[in-house]
Design a protein around this nucleic acid. Structure first.
Length: 807
DNA sequence: AGCACGCCGACT
DNA sequence: GTCGGCGTGCTC
């Protein structure tokens, strides 16, 4: 019998990474298990917090004379985290320098994270003044915002005087959805008897009785019966009281796609390359080998079919499959494709689900009712217990890295889980991340290649337009002659075009021609962008909004104009330059609403427009047979980024977007406008030459000591005062210099590329290293110690293998 | 978050 | 001398 439990506690302000010991009350001893959530008292005030049981023991394991406190309650009947999840949380905490509690919570759906509230309850000794303050209520919910400082002082005094007590609530938001059913108890025998008791003119009741008699003994959905016979819930309740029916509730899932019919799709015939890939992966599945495969295949080479047939083999082995795709490509078409092949066995985890729906999908997986899981990044934690394969599509996508605590890389989590389950991992991409391709080169990963497009070899023709020269003859600074001609021809042939505007850091802003003043956000270090739809200037980082100025705020000149180009402005120009064009615009503004993204794609697919104009998001995974022209308006903006992956990103983006042209029998054409036509990333993207790019980029990384030759860790320090942020970052550098060997390189501290966001100043340090004995423990300590700085508004973030260097 | 402890200034 | 300010540290 366990007497004590080790509990990882959810403490807000000061998190330590060690568990706390609690006593298990006698009545819970036979129920408590490792992996359950509990409510425990914590701190001097014994406020109640949620915790996770990570260990049970008979004796106290910590040397202290005080008696541990008792567990207040169990929140679960069965463990919500299994052994694997607990081990993975430990690993994550160590690997990402995150607090254990966060690592445990990230494995569970949001609703299982407790919500806390504080209540104040009147005691009999309360003064009449206090009673008045409470009004008629016994208990008030306390929140700091709701009461004034004076009121808070009053309440505090009353609490000290023993006139009221503080009650802490830990609420489990996980709610199982129940649906009402009923069973008809009306039989041929008792029908007449029931009928005799009903008034002759009570038509509704007589109808119901007849209906029930016809369905004798059957289970019916209450909502359906109500709708069909136009009855209210209370009328059915009466029927239940009369003994006509028996009402009951049953647990149901909130899965909106469950009832949808996706039809059925059959496996396609594989090419020799595809078959080889499926065979090799399947063999690893059968032999339970944790091999990692890099499936490198150009756009249109049929990677998805390899995934689907691999999953089918895994299911034949009575094992389960987990497939990650970037959030942006988790479109209805993509979902339909998987559901059509595997039907109800598929569980879907994506951000569009409500918390409740997500919880239900999680429970379906946990109970083993779904053996194929498809989802975005966080689906990597899906509670599958018998994994046969993990597939990561578009593995080079940076969105597989979580950008807040715990800052995990889903690919690395996949490798860990694969090792735990002895199953293969498939990393798929047309343009693999350099690190991935390098591991394949070294033989750590098995390299599988799909070199042929399914529909024959029809790589698009690429035209590179040098905008430095084009500018002189172009009818417009944003559109070269070549681009406009290609568009016009495409429209003439009644085909479709996709136009990409590389937006980041390149949108319409306002500048004064007289004094050079640029309108900037008052809270962040970025210029405000012009939004024609709302006729205002907006900040993309904090949402600040103000009116469009007509005179320069600095020199009062009237010569204040719009510069740069946003998708809106391009759309307007395009309408003038090509009056025949019907344009659909897809960017942050038009896709903000839920489902808007899909709607735009669907409209374009249905030929309601002939030009799709958008930002990077149009480069990902859309597949329209009639698109024969792809235009890139500004290929270089990603090159200017303060990021050692800038070339790689540019190459990937251009290669991907080029692959969108001419996928079917029609010849495709790609027009790329650039100011750096001789840049290797742009040149090699035009040639669709990944291999050359890989070797060239590897040389540069080697030369500059960047991954995959070095590991990187980024430390970001931010505060409301620039001075404080700078001071702290220099202090950290000093400490780092002491614990690092001479082989390590510290870059910075420097102000981040965007130094100020929401009135906070950002400084960053980047450590490049190969082996450092003391680094891990220093950073672990740094993360824990830096919590105390949070009271002063000082924040320190440690990010292993960072993908974002802007902040 | 909330409570104790400890070190300085203003005060009955 | 003592009361109380809040900066600092800890919570099984």
């Amino acid at each position: 019998m366990p007497n004590y439990a080790q509990v990882i506690v959810d403490v807000k302000a000061m998190q330590t990474n060690r568990p706390y010991t609690y006593q298990i009350p006698a009545e819970l001893k036979d129920q408590i298990q490792v992996g359950m959530r509990v409510v425990v008292p914590f701190g001097k005030g014994d406020r109640k917090v949620q915790g996770f049981v990570v260990e049970l023991s008979e004796k106290v394991t910590f040397a202290d004379q005080i008696e541990p406190k008792q567990i207040e309650a169990l929140m679960d009947l069965t463990p919500v985290l299994n052994e694997e999840a607990l081990a993975l949380a430990d690993h994550l905490a160590r690997e990402t320098f995150a607090f254990k509690i966060r690592c445990l919570q990230v494995m569970l759906p949001n609703v299982m994270r407790a919500s806390y509230s504080k209540g104040l309850r009147l005691l009999p000794t309360a003064s009449s003044e206090l009673k008045q303050f409470f009004g008629a209520k016994e208990e008030l919910e306390f929140s700091a915002e709701r009461f004034s400082k004076a009121e808070q002082a009053l309440l505090r005094k009353a609490q000290k005087a023993g006139q009221l007590e503080v009650i802490y609530h830990v609420k489990d938001r996980a709610r199982v959805k129940k649906t009402k059913f009923l069973t008809s108890l009306v039989t041929r025998q008792n029908y007449a008897e029931f009928k005799a008791k009903v008034r002759k003119n009570a038509t509704k009741q007589l109808d119901l009785l007849a209906f029930l008699a016809a369905k004798s003994g059957q289970e019916l959905l209450q909502a359906q019966v109500q709708a069909q016979l136009d009855l209210t819930a209370s009328q059915l309740k009466k029927a239940s009281e009369s003994g006509w029916i028996k009402q009951f509730e049953r647990e149901t899932y909130r899965d909106p796609t469950q009832t949808k019919d996706y039809g059925q799709s059959v496996p396609k015939i594989l090419t020799a390359e595809q078959k080889n890939a499926v065979d090799q992966i399947t063999s690893a599945v059968k032999q339970a080998q944790a091999t990692t495969f890099l499936l490198q295949g150009v756009t249109g080479s049929g990677k998805t079919e390899v995934y689907l047939q691999t999953i089918a083999r895994v299911l034949e082995q009575k094992k389960q499959a987990l497939m990650l795709v970037p959030e942006i490509s988790l479109t209805p078409q993509m979902v339909a494709r998987v559901k059509a092949r595997f039907g109800k066995q598929v569980a879907l985890l994506h951000s569009a689900l409500s918390d409740g729906e997500r919880y239900d999908e999680w429970r379906r997986i946990e109970r083993g009712e779904a053996s194929v899981v498809v989802g975005a990044r966080s689906a990597i934690f899906a509670p599958l217990t018998d994994l046969g394969v993990i597939i990561i599509d578009e593995e080079h996508e940076t969105s597989y890295k979580q950008e807040d605590m715990p800052r995990y890389q889903a690919k690395e989590v996949a490798l860990w889980r694969a090792k735990y389950h002895n199953c293969p991992v498939v990393l798929g991409s047309a343009t693999p991340a350099l690190e991935t391709r390098a591991r394949a080169q070294k033989g750590l990963y098995t390299h599988l290649q799909l070199t042929k497009r399914i529909n024959g070899d029809n790589l698009p023709e690429v035209t590179l337009v040098d905008m430095r020269k084009a500018k002189l003859t172009a009818p417009d600074p944003d559109f070269s002659k070549e681009m406009l001609e290609a568009l016009a021809k495409c429209l003439q042939r009644k085909e479709q075009a996709v136009l990409m505007l590389n937006r980041r850091g390149y949108s319409a802003f306002v500048m004064c021609r007289e004094c050079g003043f640029v309108l900037k956000c008052p809270n962040c270090d970025v210029s405000l962008t012009l939004h024609m739809d709302t006729h205002s200037m907006k900040c993309h980082y904090c949402g600040h909004e103000e009116a469009i100025p007509h005179v320069c705020p600095q020199c009062h000149s009237r010569k204040i104009y719009y510069y740069g180009t946003g998708t809106q402005k391009i759309e307007e120009k395009l309408n003038q330059l090509l009056p025949d064009a019907q344009i659909l615009r897809m960017d942050v503004d038009t896709t903000r609403k839920k489902g808007a993204h899909e709607r735009i794609l669907q409209q374009f697919g249905a030929k309601q427009a002939n030009i799709l104009l958008g930002t990077q998001m149009i480069a990902k995974g859309l597949d329209f047979p009639d698109v024969t022209l792809v235009g890139v308006l500004n290929a270089d903006t990603a090159l200017e980024f303060p990021d050692y992956r800038a070339s790689e990103r540019t190459f990937q983006l251009l290669t991907q977007v080029s692959g969108r042209a001419g996928r079917a029998d029609k010849k495709g054409h790609v027009v790329i406008q650039t100011y750096n036509p001789e840049h290797y990333a742009i040149q090699l993207a035009c040639q669709q030459n990944y291999e050359r790019f890989f070797f060239q980029e590897m040389q540069l990384r080697h030369l500059n000591d960047y991954p995959p030759y070095y590991y990187t860790i980024k430390i970001t320090v931010s505060a409301e005062s620039e001075n404080l942020a700078a001071k702290e970052s220099f202090l950290i550098k000093k400490q780092l210099a002491q614990c690092l060997s001479a082989d390590a390189i510290i870059l910075g501290p420097t102000p981040s590329a965007i130094m100020r966001i929401k009135n906070r100043f950002y400084y960053q340090l980047v450590i490049k290293y190969k082996h450092e004995q003391a680094l891990e423990s220093y950073l672990e300590e740094l993360v824990i110690q830096s919590q105390r700085g949070e009271k002063k508004g000082l924040q320190v973030v440690v990010d292993r293998d960072p993908v974002n260097f802007l902040t």
